[in-house]
């Protein structure tokens, strides 16, 4: 990506400690508009913790995070969400007792934050947008099902839909393919690509290396909370340190 551009999401020496243990240690990164960036690393390497820090569910102990040029190091989660950063979770968070369509509406509520509109039911246009997105994700036929009745893969799609509802600038997807059958993985991959062409930026935590290799332009590798390497997927997959971290003793 052109480096003269301003990064969309940027972190300087981001650190997060649990007790004395550094879950994320001095990580620098910059994600530019229109990129699809991968975040890989062995289990427990701090990927999800970094996501939590970026989406502000965890406090950042030191370092700074900028989103759209604004310092969001101390922002509340709902504030970064409203600025245009949405995410999915490793263990899917959907409202299992609500219908799929209702789930989509929930993620759009804040769009009208005036008191008057808060007192109204969701607008018809919002409902329409939810149906369109469900269509796009090929789960329209499930709109009136309770989310709890969906399969694992369908839930992942629904969660992506929920993250898309507010029309964000960047989506953080945490293991969007785990527990998903191969056909659906292809669907997810295809949808990500389409969305990226429409201008959405992605940051993906992923264990599925093929998925990363197919989609991402750049990859960051974390190990024990530290940035081990960064570069194109091809370069990363030949990097000795990375291979060591994954397969080494």
């Amino acid at each position: 990506m052109a480096s003269d551009q301003q990064p969309l999401l940027e972190g300087h020496t981001v650190s997060k400690y649990f007790g004395g243990l550094a879950a994320v240690n001095n990580v620098d990164f910059a994600i530019y508009p229109g990129e699809i960036v991968g975040l890989i690393g062995p289990n427990g390497s701090g990927k999800t913790t970094l996501f939590d820090c970026l989406s502000r569910l965890q406090n950042i102990d030191s370092g700074k995070v900028f989103f759209k040029g604004r310092d969001v190091t101390r922002a509340r989660p709902y504030q970064v969400a409203r600025m245009g950063l949405t995410r999915t979770f490793q263990s899917v968070r959907v409202y299992r007792k609500m219908t799929v369509h209702r789930n989509m509406l929930i993620s759009h509520q804040w769009r009208d934050t005036s008191i008057l509109s808060m007192l109204q039911p969701s607008r018809a246009s919002t409902a329409q947008r939810a149906y369109q997105l469900l269509d796009f994700l090929q789960i329209r036929h499930l709109a009136d099902e309770e989310a709890g009745h969906l399969s694992g893969g369908q839930r992942r799609l629904l969660e992506i839909g929920m993250a898309l509802m507010p029309d964000p600038d960047i989506l953080l997807l945490d293991e969007a393919t785990s527990g998903v059958n191969p056909t659906l993985i292809e669907t997810i991959k295809d949808r990500i690509r389409t969305l990226n062409e429409q201008g959405k930026t992605f940051l993906l935590i992923e264990h599925n290396i093929n998925f990363i290799a197919d989609l991402c332009s750049r990859v960051y590798v974390l190990n024990y909370g530290e940035k081990l390497a960064e570069g194109t997927p091809q370069k990363i997959l030949q990097n000795e340190a990375v291979i060591d971290a994954y397969f080494g003793a």
Binding site: S55, R76, A81, R93, I106, Q109, W110, M162, P166
Partner: peptide, 11 residues
């Protein structure tokens, strides 16, 4: 139903 989820969805 899920407070953290709600917060993350902008509520």
């Amino acid at each position: 139903e899920d407070e953290i989820g709600a917060e993350m969805r902008g509520i």
